[in-house]
Write a protein that binds this DNA or RNA. Structure first.
Lengths: 234, 234, 234, 234
DNA sequence: GATGAATGAGGGTTCATTCAT
DNA sequence: TATGAATGAACCCTCATTCAT
């Protein structure tokens, strides 16, 4: 998968580039094209979101300070309010902009016409590479953390991510059942069971990995073996 | 399971009882005072913990206000500091006192000599009744939320809960393997796979249940069917 | 006394640098604003220090409330923290900014080439006018009050004031000895003896003057008569 | 001079002794003689004052905590209020009980019929030994520190200490003038000039001695040489 | 648009004082 | 008399948000 989103650092670099684009030669005001201005605005938005990602995921919603977000983004504190109405809106935008893109890719993969096991392995790899080993992992953790206090956020996440992912997985499972690749039809009713180890991976990596490292890929393999009824000799 | 720990409401009742306990009989002065005082102190501690549970789980660590904890516990703000050195200590005590007891019960159950499936069902029921349908669910969510910012807490939780639970489950799985009740030995390496749907249950109930109710017991049944290779006809 | 004042902070310097970025021409908006802003900032700093002087000298370090300092300075409580990192820093800045300047003047006077007695009288007058009859008296009292609890402060005061004043007085005494204006060379070893009545003046004015007014100038005259061995007829 | 007051440590020991007087044999209530009880009460008062001396002189009035006073005195916090109506009363009692006794001795010494210089040297020695090298030094510093905030305290100190000391010194000076031991009659009008170096000693020892040790006895000698017009060869 | 100084409500914590035992 | 748990007002400091420039 090609990156759907620039990484934080890349975004920052981009912002810097944009900022220095007209070199030192102070262009007369108004000469700068509207398009360039819009682009600069977009770059700033990105920079702020990237900074917010770092701060929110490091400290949580309450403890994250907009001062730090601003400093990290290289803008003034007030500038944040030009792009986001308040701290909460920034948080929601953050979730939106970093998580949604991945879902599209997920849906795309589930539509590939291939044996379930192959698709599943691909999904697992996608999940590990794009989420577990990424800052996105922290965003998801943030949703679990703050979701109850921000029902809107939980709802958005349910609509945009959970339900879409569940549908995609459900379709995949149904096809697998029809083909006889799996036999337990209860999985169709509880696609959560397919995803559950992914959750474990996210939390474990964040909380316990330094105490007891977890090989996520191996765990997910074992998980699929289980689902497909593969028997390993003791 | 009989409670190892009094419930908040019970604590309050206990406090009242303690207050009225030595009715009329003239206990030697000092002894009476000391005993009653100690008991009252314990009751207060309980009350504060119960209140903290409500506030922390409703708002998270940072956003919870000790003012509210005090009010809810029916004590003055300063009183909290007689029992806990600061907000963080209160939080840790909360986790300790509400979670640890359950682990003991869990370990106990895993040592019962019965068919794996039966023990597993029992564990599931215990888990649902004592955690998922309880405030304890919120505590666990809190650990996931705040664990990264309080490494001590995560460590404590790992030592007290995770590693003990994993050992217990591992033992159970090993016995099941030996008896031929399960055939996938990878489960012994990843007991997390057994527990993963429990995690899903905790988070789902807290965040998405109002949008899309989840029948946790049914899901866990399906999970076990999967593990035991039970094939249901489509 | 015209005083040199330190700039608010490094942030200001940085701001100025940023402001000067658009070359030098036609300083439109921005630069003018920057100048006005900087000036306003300096004025605020002054206002806060003046307010702090009142509050600290009226109540002592611990009992002085920053709330009152803010109110008196006509700023919000939080504003104080834009200029001083905390209460202690404010206190130290106060001492620094009000006391240090006087020492320079003192040193200057001791270098005047004139008969000792004349210089001494001038110093006394300076001391009375600029310290005893001024709020500076209270600052010195504050140092005596809080010095033990803030060793840094005592050290600063020793370095900036005491040792410099002692050196200056010592030089003066040495010249006087050489010229035969005084004969007791022990004074050179204990310049404190010259200054001691000044201390008395400071404390007496603050604590006992309303009960028993003291004519400080007359006392200092008598002090010099003593040193110079002037004999008055009984 | 014989100690008029028990030293802190002695007081504590005395308290302990009093406490353990009836050994372990719980005497029936009421049997303990009223006299013993009064004695015990006095001992407690002493213990509290001694503890207060330590705490107040170490931290100042505001910053001293009654909790620490109680702990140091070996009594409960509430007990302090049985002996002193509030923190301020404790402070004033402290000053009274530790300073007043010394004044009596001072007055006594000034009435000795001996050459002024001899008496002066004796006074200096008394001052150094009983005040400068003692916790009393801190009490005097406390009066300077807190005097302005507690006018009652300053007034008490003026009446009990300052005015009595000044009278005594004045009498001494008058006799010295009459005998021709000194010639500067202005000293009679400003006895403060005699005492001033004592002040310097107190403050210097507390604030600057670690930076620049001061030989107080030598300084006072030099002071007297000055007053008596002793000329030392350069 | 962009800035960052200024605001001020709010929270954690302390501690003199009280009072039931 | 003695205790020490309990109180709650007070205070320092933070930080989201605003607004003049």
């Amino acid at each position: 998968m090609r990156k759907t989103r620039t990484k934080p650092s890349a975004a920052a670099a981009q912002r810097v580039a944009a900022a220095s684009k007209n070199g030192g030669q102070a262009l007369p005001d108004g000469v700068e094209a509207a398009g360039a201005r819009a682009k600069r605005g977009a770059a700033r938005r990105e920079a702020i979101l990237a900074a917010a990602l770092e701060e929110f995921s490091a400290h949580g919603f309450e403890a994250a300070r907009l001062d730090d977000v601003a400093r990290r983004a290289g803008v003034a504190k007030g500038t944040i309010y030009l792009y986001f109405s308040d701290k909460e809106a920034l948080f929601q935008a953050l979730v939106r902009s970093y998580i949604s893109p991945v879902v599209g890719t997920l849906e795309h993969v589930t539509h590939v016409d291939a044996p379930f096991r192959a698709v599943a392995e691909q999904l697992a790899e996608l999940f590990v590479r794009e989420i577990v080993e990424t800052r996105r992992r922290d965003i998801i953790r943030l949703i679990f953390s703050e979701g109850q206090r921000f029902p809107k956020l939980a709802e958005f996440y349910y609509r945009e991510v959970i339900s879409r992912a569940m549908s995609a997985v459900r379709g995949l499972l149904r096809r697998a059942l029809e083909r006889g690749e799996i036999t337990n039809e209860a999985l169709v009713r509880f696609p959560q069971l397919i995803v559950a180890p992914g959750l474990v991976a996210i939390l474990w990596k964040s909380l316990f990995d330094r105490l007891d490292p977890l090989d996520v890929r191996a765990m997910l393999h074992a998980h699929f073996d289980n689902i497909f009824g593969v028997r390993r000799p003791a």
